[in-house]
């Protein structure tokens, strides 16, 4: 169950949340411009590893079903060389490749997002301030959760809600200072971005 309490992870120790977000944002084009399917699958595995290092639990079965279903749906629009036929379905190389590319791209983007976004990432402006208020109350609600009884659900929910919020009141919140990015973090950031961007140019066909 997700909470706002950040787990003590490698990326959490060495990256400020906005630098981690920036790293993810710069990895996305390097991933999308990657023309080689094998390298793209390797990037997906790398991003999955990074998401795990960021404290996220990955539901592998969900993503296997995701890639498989996208690929299968793509096979219904055949194009390119015929590989084999299964009953009425003709499996073509073009449709298979396109389906796998699409499936792995979508799953890879989810993993980049899981790896680069933490709850302590602060959005700018008034909206960011509102999100801060939402997270403040969310932590209080999670604390009150243990008092909720399924057998007298509405009654027990009422007790928790009365305790947390009365109309017209405004509770003060304090924001904790964010940990800065360490030198190790900058090195990891540099290596990740260099490797992924170099791979784009190495695997792309030359324009001349």
């Amino acid at each position: 169950m997700p909470t706002l309490q950040p787990r003590e992870t490698f990326l959490g120790r060495h990256f400020a949340p906005h630098h981690l977000f920036l790293t993810g944002a710069l990895l996305i084009p390097a991933f999308l411009f990657q023309p080689n399917l094998v390298v793209r699958v390797a990037q997906v595995l790398l991003f999955a590893f990074l998401a795990t290092v960021n404290g996220k639990r990955i539901k592998w079965m969900y993503f296997v079903i995701m890639v498989s279903s996208i690929t299968i749906f793509n096979l219904f629009t055949p194009f390119g060389e015929i590989l084999f036929t299964v009953g009425p379905l003709t499996v073509t190389l073009g449709a298979l490749r396109s389906g796998l590319e699409k499936g792995f791209t979508i799953v890879g983007l989810v993993f980049v997002s899981l790896a680069s976004i933490r709850p302590d990432l602060r959005l700018p402006g008034r909206l960011g301030g509102m999100i801060g208020r939402v997270f403040y109350y969310f932590e209080r609600v999670i604390e009150g959760k243990k008092h909720i009884r399924p057998r007298r659900l509405i009654e027990s929910l009422d007790e928790v809600l009365f305790d947390l919020y009365q109309p017209g009141e405004r509770r003060s919140t304090t924001r904790e200072a964010l940990r800065p990015t360490s030198s190790v973090g900058y090195v990891v950031m540099g290596v990740l971005l260099s490797v992924n961007w170099i791979l784009v140019f190495v695997t792309s066909p030359l324009p001349f």
Binding site: I28, L109, V110, S113, L114, I117, L123, F138
Partner: peptide, 13 residues
């Protein structure tokens, strides 16, 4: 937005 931040899915489909 809150859901995207907590679950880390803010930059995905």
């Amino acid at each position: 937005l809150g859901h995207g931040l907590i679950n880390g899915t803010l930059a995905s489909y």
